[in-house]
């Protein structure tokens, strides 16, 4: 049976993991390759690396890092951050990334999704959607690291990028992100129901139960978390053992 995926997410700045990582049993907690290897051994199903650097020089460092990650880990990984053209994707996929994630550039230029799908296949095009709920407007898509509200309603946008060729949706609720109060089950469920491609739930994971809800209530295909894993509040093996006991299909 196809299993639900557990995906740790690493933020990368100038070749190093940032946003605080607390690990004692690996040599260098700031080294993304060390951390990636450790997560792979722990049973993570995939990894996501987000490049949060700004300059072109630092972006070159990121491509080198992607190559280093691909050399050392034997599970799939997605890379994202600052991708705006076919040429950017070519560099990252040729370095060994399995998928790329695009966000603001898809809003700016929706045809990019179609172009990437045509060049590289839908299976390697993940569209990341940052969504936020305000009472008067419902769930809207945000861009530029969540700073700017767009006119797109979240479910419509998810459907549109899927029609354009996205092979997967990474849905982050900004209302939930960082709260540890659980995933945004409502909007995640609506998107999962509306599109025919897999949906990754993101933002708000705080407990094992939250993951079970993302899979069983919202029907997400995968769930992503960062600090929860980095700060060792929850380990991947402990989470998977719990999910298995709950009857969720996981790879152990």
């Amino acid at each position: 049976m196809l299993t639900k995926r557990i995906i740790p997410c690493l933020d990368i700045k100038n070749g190093r993991t940032v946003k605080g990582v607390q690990f004692e049993n690996i040599r260098d907690a700031g080294d993304p390759v060390e951390l990636a290897k450790w997560y792979a051994e722990q049973g993570a199903d995939e990894l996501v690396f987000l490049d949060i650097t700004a300059t072109n020089e630092e972006r070159k460092t990121f491509a080198e890092l992607v190559r280093d990650i691909a050399r050392h880990i034997d599970i799939p990984f997605t890379v994202g951050g600052g991708i705006s053209a076919v040429a950017d994707v070519e560099v990252l996929l040729h370095a060994g990334a399995d998928k790329v994630s695009i966000n603001s550039s898809a809003i700016k230029n929706p045809q990019l999704v179609e172009e990437l799908a045509r060049h590289f296949g839908s299976q390697c095009v993940t569209v990341a959607i940052d969504t936020k709920h305000k009472d008067e407007t419902g769930w809207k898509v945000y861009t530029r690291a969540g700073t700017i509200e767009t006119e797109h309603s979240t479910v419509d946008w998810a459907k549109r990028v899927t029609d354009l060729g996205a092979g997967e949706i990474l849905l982050t609720s900004m209302n939930n992100d960082g709260t540890k109060a659980g995933f945004a089950l409502g909007v995640t469920g609506e998107v999962a129901k509306a599109v025919s491609v897999p949906v990754i739930a993101s933002g708000g994971a705080g407990t094992k139960q939250h993951f079970a809800e993302a899979f069983e209530v919202a029907h997400a295909d995968a769930a992503l978390a960062a600090s929860l894993f980095h700060f060792r509040e929850l380990s991947v093996p402990e989470l998977k053992a719990y999910l298995k006991e709950k009857g969720v299909a996981v790879r152990i």
Binding site: M1, L2, T3, K4, R5, E46, G167, E168, P198
Partner: peptide, 11 residues
């Protein structure tokens, strides 16, 4: 009715 692509770990 399942999601396509078939993406992830299967037996």
């Amino acid at each position: 009715e399942l999601k396509v692509p078939h993406m992830g770990w299967n037996q």
